[in-house]
Computed example of a mutant assay.
Amino acid sequence: MLQSPGVLFTVLAFVLVIGPLVFVHEMGHYLAGRWFGVHAEAFSIGFGREVAGFTDKRGTRWKFGWLPLGGYVRFAGDMNPASQPDAAWLALPPEQRARTFQAKPVWQRAIIVAAGPVVNFLLAMLILGGFAVAYGDARTPATVGVVEQGSAAAAAGLRPGDRVVALNGREVEYFEDLASFAKIHPGERVRVDFVRDGAAGSTEAVLGTRRERDRFGNEYRFGRLGVGPSRPVIVPVGLAEAPVVAVRRTGEIVQLMVETLGQIISGRRPISELGGPLQIAKVSGEQLALGPEAFVFLLALVSINLGFINLLPVPMLDGGHLLFYAVEAVRRRPLEPQVQEWAFRGGLAALLALMVLVTFNDLGSFGLWRNLADLIG
């Protein structure tokens, strides 16, 4: 097991994460388009100048770009980022025009666009379902077995035997739900609803904050209630139940993502926690160094993130296209080209600004700004 991944190892791990996930995402678009009879002109992993590629018998150019930070499928008739047809499209012969993206009804275009994120979620569910079959599913009852002395739980008056049923009104079914909630709310005051000796009770607790440093030097801040179960319960999972567990786990991960994003937007969590490609590369190298199980689990997490982010209703992302298609379905006609054009320009500007921000954060997490400050000082 590697103690500290080097640069080449980290680059390899990053390629092993981003390459397959981008391929799966774009393959979702490609297969949906092919199902509806849309001709794909190009299928690219990476952006920029082509490094290598080939053309198949259907006339699709499969290629690799020199910048491996994404990919795309370019369908016939998809003339620009707003998917607006131009005069060249109108001049196509009818039989050729029928195989273009813009010739398809809005519901088919929506399915083609949504297929990419959907396949990312399906891949994550496949991985999480496999883990459930291999290692079982944690379903420890949310009953307090141990109360740590001096903890938030002790100050709130919780006792062994209390069964926690809700935190801030959110239902708690298993102890793992309790731990996940506490983990992302460090230092916050929460209402704890519990059952003691058959009677319902409620109290408030200010969650403690615990800082941990892993073997790679990364520091994490966690919330902590200060309770533990009597004993963990791991339930075996069969193949028939695995999809159910996978869907539940995926939903829990998405819920955590939405909540932490809301905390950043509201200022309860520092914006410096937003990471970008450099941070993903760093984590990829670390998880690959930890072993195949950790790395495959990271694949599931990044796949969920990729699917979730692409569904955000931001122009230039799949979610932005879906938003325009929803408007088109209601209006029975597309938005005016000028409106779409300005929306996509705004979306591009927002994404570029976000990339600058997360890159700034990534470089800060590597200690660049601290080292520069030390040199200047």
Rank of each mutant, 00 (worst) to 15 (best):
A329K: 13
D56H: 03
L352D: 04
T140N: 04
V247F: 11
I265S: 02
W369S: 11
W62Q: 13
P81N: 07
I45W: 07
G48Y: 06
W342I: 12
W66F: 14
P337C: 01
A91T: 10
L317N: 06
F64V: 15
A154E: 05
Q287H: 08
Y30T: 00
S303N: 09
R224A: 00
L323R: 02
F175S: 06
V146C: 02
G347M: 05
G157R: 05
A166L: 13
Y174R: 13
Q96D: 11
G53L: 12
P315H: 09
V51A: 05
I184V: 15
G208Y: 00
L301C: 10
V247Y: 01
G201Q: 04
R333L: 08
Y30S: 03
V38K: 03
P81I: 03
F36Q: 08
F344S: 00
R248M: 08
S4Y: 13
M125E: 05
A110T: 06
V302K: 01
F36V: 08
P5K: 03
M27L: 15
L357I: 14
R333F: 08
E336I: 02
F216Q: 01
Y325N: 09
P313R: 01
G291K: 08
N310Y: 01
V190R: 07
A103S: 15
V51N: 03
P337S: 00
R74C: 10
L122P: 06
G157Q: 13
T359M: 09
G28D: 13
Q149W: 06
A294F: 06
L368M: 06
L323A: 15
G367D: 09
E273Q: 12
A205S: 06
G161M: 02
G228L: 12
T209E: 15
Q287G: 00
S303C: 04
R170Q: 15
L323C: 11
M257K: 01
L298M: 12
D56I: 12
W342H: 10
A326F: 11
F121E: 12
A294S: 15
D374R: 14
L207E: 07
E336T: 12
N120G: 13
R370L: 08
P292R: 00
H185R: 14
R213F: 02
G319A: 10
G346V: 11
E26F: 04
A353R: 02
V237T: 10
F131P: 11
R332C: 04
L31I: 05
A350W: 07
N218F: 12
D362H: 00
I184Y: 04
G130H: 10
L16H: 02
I271R: 13
R231C: 02
V237A: 04
R109C: 11
Y220R: 02
V296T: 01
R99V: 03
P313M: 06
I304T: 02
G367S: 08
L123E: 00
V339Y: 08
D137L: 15
I127W: 08
D86K: 13
V296F: 00
T143F: 01
A138Y: 04
G367E: 03
F36E: 07
Y325M: 03
V283E: 08
K282C: 08
G228V: 07
R370F: 00
G307W: 11
L357Y: 02
A179T: 15
Q338M: 12
R58N: 14
A300Y: 01
